[in-house]
Simulated assay, not measured.
Amino acid sequence: MKPEDLDALIAGNVRAARARARMRQEDLADELGWSRPVVGTLEAGKRRVTLADAVLLCRALDITLNELLQGVPNEVFRSLGLTEAQ
């Protein structure tokens, strides 16, 4: 999986999780201590998500890492030594 494909997949999962939580981008930005444009850039797939960002996003959206990475091929999980997505 190419990095830009992973960025796009995570972006979609963040948008979906935020929508399910009935949060605005501003709300998520406040939770994360980020600006709204940074959240917008992430949700557009134009901002790379670091591991630290992933932890913050999971906490703010009350989701698991598996949920954040939903749709990522199982070989990516295996290469990281993680249990495959359910």
Rank of each mutant, 00 (worst) to 15 (best):
A11Q: 01
L32F: 07
G12N: 08
P3S: 15
G45A: 01
A16N: 08
L57V: 12
A60N: 07
R47D: 01
L28C: 11
I63Y: 07
S79N: 15
R78Y: 05
A21M: 04
R24D: 08
E31N: 13
D62S: 14
T64K: 00
L42Q: 01
L32D: 01
I10A: 03
T83W: 06
L61Q: 07
E26V: 06
I10Q: 05
R48G: 06
A16I: 07
R36N: 05
V72Y: 08
R36P: 09
R24V: 04
L68M: 11
P73W: 01
L69N: 03
S79H: 14
E84W: 00
A85P: 12
V14S: 03
L32A: 02
R48H: 15
A17E: 00
A52K: 01
K46D: 11
Q86C: 09
T83H: 09
P73G: 03
V39K: 05
A21N: 06
A60C: 08
E26H: 02
L57I: 13
L69T: 05
V55G: 04
P73K: 02
R22M: 11
A54H: 07
E67C: 02
T64E: 02
C58G: 14
E75Y: 15
I10M: 10
T83L: 10
G33H: 01
A8I: 11
L68R: 07
N13L: 00
G81A: 10
A54E: 10
L32G: 01
E4N: 15
Q70C: 14
A29N: 04
E67S: 09
E4I: 15
Q86E: 15
A29S: 06
L6Y: 14
G40P: 04
L80N: 10
Q86Y: 09
T83N: 13
D7W: 14
C58V: 14
R59S: 13
V76H: 13
I63N: 05
G40K: 01
G40Q: 03
E75L: 13
R47C: 01
L28Q: 04
L28G: 06
T41A: 10
L80D: 03
D62H: 13
V39A: 07
E4P: 09
A44W: 02
L61W: 01
D27T: 12
A44S: 08
T50R: 09
P3Y: 13
G45R: 02
D7H: 13
Q25I: 06
S35C: 05
D5W: 10
R22V: 09
L82V: 09
N13I: 00
L68E: 04
G71V: 00
R15N: 04
A52E: 05
L68S: 02
L51W: 12
D30E: 14
G12W: 00
G12K: 07
I63H: 05
R59V: 14
L65S: 10
P3E: 15
G12Q: 06
R22L: 08
G81P: 12
G12E: 02
L56D: 15
A11M: 00
R20F: 03
G45S: 03
S79F: 10
L9W: 00
R22E: 10
A19L: 05
E26K: 02
L57D: 06
F77Y: 05
V49Q: 08
V39W: 04
V39F: 03
G81C: 11
E67Y: 02
A19K: 08
L6I: 15
D27L: 03
